[in-house]
């Protein structure tokens, strides 16, 4: 049995095994959604009552605020390995009934990660209510560039 026969596939097997091990040890990939989106302008943080990255909302950590994109901001929050997003959309930008609304904005939640994770109802209620209060306090005074109905 000559090594040139079994050596290359053996080496490839080893590399593949190392690759599988490396991928398993590194855990599920954090999809680069937040990283690929545009960070929100200061006015967006002002609309949310000077929200800060890393701030806690009902025990959940604010990971980032991005947009506006298509007339909506996206706020990502996380606890342990679970994430989900709150969307603050200009009225009519998302044509779907909103769980909560303010005078100028519709609030939604979604994008649980890992996919299919059930976020506890009380956490959603608390965070959504908190965001709604913040938006209500500031929406009359703060104009976020781009946070309006997309041009058609």
């Amino acid at each position: 049995m000559m090594i040139w026969r079994w050596g290359p596939p053996a080496a490839l097997s080893l590399v593949c095994l190392l690759g599988v091990g490396e991928r398993l040890l590194s855990g599920p990939p954090i999809t680069a959604r937040a990283g690929q989106r545009t960070p929100a302008p200061p006015e967006a943080f002002a609309l949310l009552d000077d929200l800060e990255i890393g701030e806690k909302l009902a025990g959940w950590t604010v990971l980032g605020l991005t947009g506006p994109r298509d007339g909506a901001l996206q706020l990502d929050v996380a606890r342990d390995d679970i994430r989900f997003s709150i969307t603050v959309a200009a009225r009519g930008a998302v044509q779907f009934p909103a769980p909560r609304t303010t005078a100028r904005y519709d609030l939604y939640y979604g994008h649980p990660h890992p996919r299919g994770t059930e976020i506890p109802d009380n956490a959603i209620r608390a965070i959504m209510a908190g965001i709604e209060r913040r938006v209500r306090r500031n929406e009359a005074d703060v104009v976020v560039p781009g946070l309006s109905l997309p041009e058609t």
């Binding site: 079994w6 596939p9 490839l12 097997s13 690759g19 599988v20 990939p29």
Partner: peptide, 27 residues
């Protein structure tokens, strides 16, 4: 593909085939 997938199943499948080929070459 595994860099942005939840599980490296594709790489696992290739690994099985590579190991099978090694076994075949070792008779």
């Amino acid at each position: 593909g595994a860099l942005s997938a939840r599980h490296p199943t594709g790489l696992l499948a290739v690994t099985f085939v590579a190991v099978a080929l090694t076994a075949q070459r070792l008779n």
